[in-house]
Protein backbone atom coordinates (compact mmCIF):
# COMPACT_ATOMS: atom_id res chain seq x y z
CA UNK A 1 0.00 0.00 0.00
CA UNK A 2 1.40 3.41 -0.79
CA UNK A 3 2.12 5.52 2.24
CA UNK A 4 -0.53 8.15 1.49
CA UNK A 5 -3.25 5.52 1.25
CA UNK A 6 -2.06 4.07 4.55
CA UNK A 7 -2.29 7.47 6.20
CA UNK A 8 -5.74 8.07 4.77
CA UNK A 9 -6.84 4.70 6.04
CA UNK A 10 -5.37 5.41 9.49
CA UNK A 11 -7.18 8.76 9.68
CA UNK A 12 -10.44 7.16 8.59
CA UNK A 13 -10.10 4.35 11.13
CA UNK A 14 -9.15 6.64 14.01
CA UNK A 15 -11.99 8.98 13.03
CA UNK A 16 -14.57 6.19 13.09
CA UNK A 17 -13.33 4.91 16.44
CA UNK A 18 -13.20 8.35 18.05
CA UNK A 19 -16.72 8.81 16.71
CA UNK A 20 -17.81 5.56 18.32
CA UNK A 21 -16.12 6.50 21.60
CA UNK A 22 -17.68 9.96 21.74
CA UNK A 23 -21.09 9.15 20.25
CA UNK A 24 -22.89 8.41 23.54
CA UNK A 25 -21.30 11.35 25.37
CA UNK A 26 -22.17 13.78 22.59
CA UNK A 27 -25.75 12.51 22.41
CA UNK A 28 -26.03 12.69 26.20
CA UNK A 29 -24.85 16.27 26.42
CA UNK A 30 -26.63 17.47 23.26
CA UNK A 31 -30.03 16.20 24.29
CA UNK A 32 -29.66 17.56 27.80
CA UNK A 33 -30.50 20.86 26.07
CA UNK A 34 -33.55 19.34 24.32
CA UNK A 35 -36.55 21.62 24.26
CA UNK A 36 -39.01 18.79 24.67
CA UNK A 37 -39.67 15.81 26.88
CA UNK A 38 -37.80 13.10 24.92
CA UNK A 39 -34.01 13.19 24.65
CA UNK A 40 -34.00 11.65 21.15
CA UNK A 41 -34.01 13.20 17.70
CA UNK A 42 -35.33 15.40 16.35
CA UNK A 43 -33.81 18.22 18.36
CA UNK A 44 -36.62 20.69 18.87
CA UNK A 45 -34.53 23.51 20.19
CA UNK A 46 -32.02 24.36 22.91
CA UNK A 47 -32.98 25.13 26.48
CA UNK A 48 -31.39 25.15 29.93
CA UNK A 49 -34.73 24.09 31.39
CA UNK A 50 -33.55 20.65 32.44
CA UNK A 51 -30.53 22.01 34.24
CA UNK A 52 -32.80 24.32 36.20
CA UNK A 53 -34.89 21.27 36.95
CA UNK A 54 -32.06 19.23 38.38
CA UNK A 55 -30.65 22.07 40.45
CA UNK A 56 -34.11 22.57 41.90
CA UNK A 57 -34.45 18.87 42.67
CA UNK A 58 -33.73 18.55 46.40
CA UNK A 59 -33.27 14.78 46.32
CA UNK A 60 -30.84 14.95 43.43
CA UNK A 61 -28.81 17.73 45.00
CA UNK A 62 -28.75 15.87 48.31
CA UNK A 63 -27.46 12.80 46.47
CA UNK A 64 -24.80 14.92 44.77
CA UNK A 65 -23.71 16.26 48.15
CA UNK A 66 -23.68 12.74 49.59
CA UNK A 67 -21.56 11.53 46.70
CA UNK A 68 -18.99 14.27 47.21
CA UNK A 69 -18.95 13.68 50.96
CA UNK A 70 -18.49 9.93 50.66
CA UNK A 71 -15.88 10.33 47.91
CA UNK A 72 -13.76 12.86 49.79
CA UNK A 73 -13.92 11.21 53.21
CA UNK A 74 -13.43 7.64 52.02
CA UNK A 75 -10.55 8.74 49.75
CA UNK A 76 -8.90 10.63 52.59
CA UNK A 77 -9.15 7.58 54.85
CA UNK A 78 -7.88 5.28 52.09
CA UNK A 79 -4.95 7.63 51.44
CA UNK A 80 -4.05 7.87 55.11
CA UNK A 81 -4.19 4.11 55.71
CA UNK A 82 -2.43 3.46 52.41
CA UNK A 83 0.32 5.97 53.22
CA UNK A 84 0.97 4.55 56.68
CA UNK A 85 1.05 0.98 55.39
CA UNK A 86 3.29 1.93 52.46
CA UNK A 87 5.63 3.67 54.92
CA UNK A 88 5.75 0.56 57.10
CA UNK A 89 6.53 -1.78 54.20
CA UNK A 90 8.97 0.53 52.42
CA UNK A 91 10.97 1.60 55.46
CA UNK A 92 10.90 -1.34 57.85
CA UNK A 93 11.29 -5.06 57.60
CA UNK A 94 8.18 -6.88 58.71
CA UNK A 95 7.75 -10.65 58.85
CA UNK A 96 5.77 -12.17 55.94
CA UNK A 97 5.55 -8.73 54.35
CA UNK A 98 4.79 -10.25 50.94
CA UNK A 99 1.71 -11.92 52.36
CA UNK A 100 0.61 -8.75 54.16
CA UNK A 101 1.04 -6.64 51.04
CA UNK A 102 -0.94 -9.24 49.08
CA UNK A 103 -3.76 -8.95 51.66
CA UNK A 104 -3.88 -5.17 51.30
CA UNK A 105 -4.08 -5.22 47.49
CA UNK A 106 -6.37 -8.28 47.35
CA UNK A 107 -9.66 -6.30 47.09
CA UNK A 108 -8.40 -4.88 43.78
CA UNK A 109 -8.69 -8.34 42.21
CA UNK A 110 -12.21 -9.10 43.43
CA UNK A 111 -15.39 -7.89 41.76
CA UNK A 112 -17.11 -5.05 43.65
CA UNK A 113 -20.32 -7.05 43.56
CA UNK A 114 -18.66 -9.70 45.74
CA UNK A 115 -17.17 -7.13 48.12
CA UNK A 116 -20.57 -5.49 48.45
CA UNK A 117 -22.36 -8.79 49.06
CA UNK A 118 -19.85 -9.81 51.73
CA UNK A 119 -20.23 -6.49 53.55
CA UNK A 120 -24.00 -6.60 53.19
CA UNK A 121 -24.19 -10.06 54.77
CA UNK A 122 -21.96 -9.04 57.69
CA UNK A 123 -23.76 -5.73 58.27
CA UNK A 124 -27.17 -7.37 58.26
CA UNK A 125 -25.96 -10.14 60.55
CA UNK A 126 -24.58 -7.59 63.04
CA UNK A 127 -27.72 -5.44 62.66
CA UNK A 128 -25.69 -2.49 61.48
CA UNK A 129 -27.94 0.12 59.87
CA UNK A 130 -27.09 0.79 56.23
CA UNK A 131 -26.09 4.41 55.71
CA UNK A 132 -23.55 6.59 53.95
CA UNK A 133 -21.05 5.33 56.55
CA UNK A 134 -21.41 1.76 55.36
CA UNK A 135 -21.04 2.92 51.76
CA UNK A 136 -17.91 4.84 52.75
CA UNK A 137 -16.45 1.80 54.51
CA UNK A 138 -16.96 -0.18 51.31
CA UNK A 139 -15.36 2.54 49.21
CA UNK A 140 -12.31 2.56 51.47
CA UNK A 141 -12.02 -1.18 50.86
CA UNK A 142 -11.85 -0.73 47.08
CA UNK A 143 -9.67 2.41 47.17
CA UNK A 144 -7.16 1.37 49.82
CA UNK A 145 -5.33 -1.08 47.49
CA UNK A 146 -5.08 1.63 44.84
CA UNK A 147 -3.76 4.29 47.25
CA UNK A 148 -1.36 1.82 48.85
CA UNK A 149 -0.01 0.67 45.49
CA UNK A 150 0.50 4.19 44.12
CA UNK A 151 2.16 5.57 47.26
CA UNK A 152 4.22 2.43 47.88
CA UNK A 153 5.56 2.56 44.32
CA UNK A 154 6.73 6.14 44.82
CA UNK A 155 8.68 5.40 48.01
CA UNK A 156 12.20 4.91 46.71
CA UNK A 157 15.38 3.97 48.53
CA UNK A 158 16.87 7.40 47.77
CA UNK A 159 14.43 8.99 50.21
CA UNK A 160 15.65 6.86 53.10
CA UNK A 161 18.72 9.04 53.69
CA UNK A 162 16.58 12.17 53.58
CA UNK A 163 14.40 10.77 56.37
CA UNK A 164 17.50 9.67 58.24
CA UNK A 165 18.88 13.18 57.98
CA UNK A 166 15.68 14.54 59.52
CA UNK A 167 15.86 12.01 62.33
CA UNK A 168 19.55 12.79 62.79
CA UNK A 169 18.69 16.46 63.22
CA UNK A 170 16.34 15.59 66.03
CA UNK A 171 12.97 15.04 64.35
CA UNK A 172 10.63 12.56 66.02
CA UNK A 173 8.86 9.92 63.97
CA UNK A 174 5.67 11.93 63.52
CA UNK A 175 7.73 14.99 62.56
CA UNK A 176 9.69 13.02 59.97
CA UNK A 177 6.45 11.77 58.49
CA UNK A 178 4.58 15.06 58.58
CA UNK A 179 7.39 17.46 57.66
CA UNK A 180 9.54 15.35 55.36
CA UNK A 181 8.01 12.13 54.01
CA UNK A 182 4.49 13.35 53.26
CA UNK A 183 5.53 16.64 51.56
CA UNK A 184 8.17 14.77 49.58
CA UNK A 185 5.57 12.26 48.32
CA UNK A 186 2.81 14.85 47.85
CA UNK A 187 2.49 14.33 44.05
CA UNK A 188 1.74 10.64 44.40
CA UNK A 189 -0.43 11.13 47.47
CA UNK A 190 -2.51 13.67 45.53
CA UNK A 191 -2.65 11.33 42.52
CA UNK A 192 -3.92 8.53 44.74
CA UNK A 193 -6.45 10.87 46.34
CA UNK A 194 -7.90 12.25 43.10
CA UNK A 195 -8.05 8.85 41.43
CA UNK A 196 -9.73 7.47 44.50
CA UNK A 197 -12.26 10.34 44.53
CA UNK A 198 -13.05 9.65 40.87
CA UNK A 199 -13.66 5.97 41.51
CA UNK A 200 -15.78 6.55 44.59
CA UNK A 201 -17.75 9.28 42.79
CA UNK A 202 -18.73 6.84 40.00
CA UNK A 203 -19.11 3.66 42.00
CA UNK A 204 -22.55 2.06 41.85
CA UNK A 205 -22.84 -1.49 43.20
CA UNK A 206 -21.47 -0.87 46.70
CA UNK A 207 -23.37 2.40 46.99
CA UNK A 208 -26.54 0.64 45.81
CA UNK A 209 -26.37 -2.38 48.09
CA UNK A 210 -25.02 -0.70 51.21
CA UNK A 211 -27.18 2.41 51.39
CA UNK A 212 -30.72 2.91 52.53
CA UNK A 213 -32.30 6.34 52.88
CA UNK A 214 -29.43 8.62 51.99
CA UNK A 215 -28.07 7.56 48.62
CA UNK A 216 -25.23 8.67 46.37
CA UNK A 217 -25.69 10.23 42.96
CA UNK A 218 -25.23 7.10 40.79
CA UNK A 219 -27.91 5.33 42.86
CA UNK A 220 -30.26 8.32 42.55
CA UNK A 221 -29.69 8.41 38.78
CA UNK A 222 -30.37 4.68 38.68
CA UNK A 223 -33.76 5.19 40.27
CA UNK A 224 -34.47 8.02 37.80
CA UNK A 225 -33.90 5.54 34.96
CA UNK A 226 -37.07 3.65 35.89
CA UNK A 227 -39.07 6.46 34.36
CA UNK A 228 -37.36 5.82 31.02
CA UNK A 229 -35.64 8.33 28.76
CA UNK A 230 -35.76 11.81 30.25
CA UNK A 231 -33.79 14.97 29.35
CA UNK A 232 -33.43 15.58 33.07
CA UNK A 233 -31.34 12.40 33.32
CA UNK A 234 -29.27 13.73 30.44
CA UNK A 235 -28.69 16.95 32.33
CA UNK A 236 -27.54 15.32 35.56
CA UNK A 237 -25.48 12.79 33.54
CA UNK A 238 -23.74 15.69 31.79
CA UNK A 239 -23.01 17.33 35.14
CA UNK A 240 -21.52 14.08 36.48
CA UNK A 241 -19.38 13.70 33.37
CA UNK A 242 -18.22 17.30 33.61
CA UNK A 243 -17.19 16.83 37.24
CA UNK A 244 -15.24 13.67 36.38
CA UNK A 245 -13.43 15.52 33.63
CA UNK A 246 -12.64 18.40 35.99
CA UNK A 247 -11.22 15.94 38.52
CA UNK A 248 -9.12 14.36 35.78
CA UNK A 249 -7.72 17.65 34.64
CA UNK A 250 -6.90 18.57 38.22
CA UNK A 251 -5.00 15.31 38.46
CA UNK A 252 -3.19 16.05 35.22
CA UNK A 253 -2.39 19.66 36.12
CA UNK A 254 -1.54 19.50 39.80
CA UNK A 255 0.01 16.09 40.05
CA UNK A 256 1.49 14.96 36.78
CA UNK A 257 2.83 18.37 35.83
CA UNK A 258 4.52 18.71 39.22
CA UNK A 259 6.08 15.27 39.25
CA UNK A 260 7.64 16.01 35.87
CA UNK A 261 9.86 18.65 37.46
CA UNK A 262 13.32 17.58 38.56
CA UNK A 263 13.64 17.26 42.30
Amino acid sequence: MPRQLQTAFAILYAGVLYGFIFLPVVVLVLFSFQDGTLPVPPLHGLTLHWYGEIFADRKLMAALGNSLLVAVISSAVACLLGFLAAYAFARYRLPASNLQRALIVAPMTVSTLIIALGLLSVFSRLDIQLSLWTVGAGHVVINLPLCFAIIYASMGAHQINIERAARDLGARDWQVMLLVTAPMLMPSILAAFFLSVTFSWDEFIIAFLLSRFDVTLPVEIWSMLRSGLDPKTNAIGSVVFLMSVVLLFMLELIVLRKSGKPS
Binding site: I21, V25, L28, P39, V40, P41, D202, G237
Partner: peptide, 30 residues
Protein backbone atom coordinates in the same frame (compact mmCIF):
# COMPACT_ATOMS: atom_id res chain seq x y z
CA UNK B 1 -6.54 11.35 26.85
CA UNK B 2 -9.26 12.04 24.28
CA UNK B 3 -9.53 8.36 23.42
CA UNK B 4 -10.25 7.46 27.03
CA UNK B 5 -12.11 10.54 28.22
CA UNK B 6 -15.61 8.97 28.23
CA UNK B 7 -14.04 6.15 30.26
CA UNK B 8 -14.54 8.44 33.23
CA UNK B 9 -18.28 8.92 32.86
CA UNK B 10 -20.00 6.93 35.54
CA UNK B 11 -21.15 3.42 34.71
CA UNK B 12 -24.79 4.27 35.05
CA UNK B 13 -24.62 7.41 32.92
CA UNK B 14 -22.60 5.71 30.20
CA UNK B 15 -25.08 2.88 29.83
CA UNK B 16 -27.95 5.33 29.84
CA UNK B 17 -26.24 7.30 27.07
CA UNK B 18 -26.06 4.18 24.96
CA UNK B 19 -29.73 3.64 25.58
CA UNK B 20 -30.33 7.09 24.07
CA UNK B 21 -28.31 6.07 21.03
CA UNK B 22 -29.63 2.54 20.55
CA UNK B 23 -33.30 2.69 21.54
CA UNK B 24 -36.08 2.33 18.96
CA UNK B 25 -36.40 6.09 18.61
CA UNK B 26 -32.72 6.67 19.22
CA UNK B 27 -30.08 8.34 17.09
CA UNK B 28 -28.95 5.24 15.20
CA UNK B 29 -32.39 3.96 14.24
CA UNK B 30 -33.65 7.39 13.24
Amino acid sequence: IMAILPFWTSYVVRSYSWLLVLSKGGVVNQ
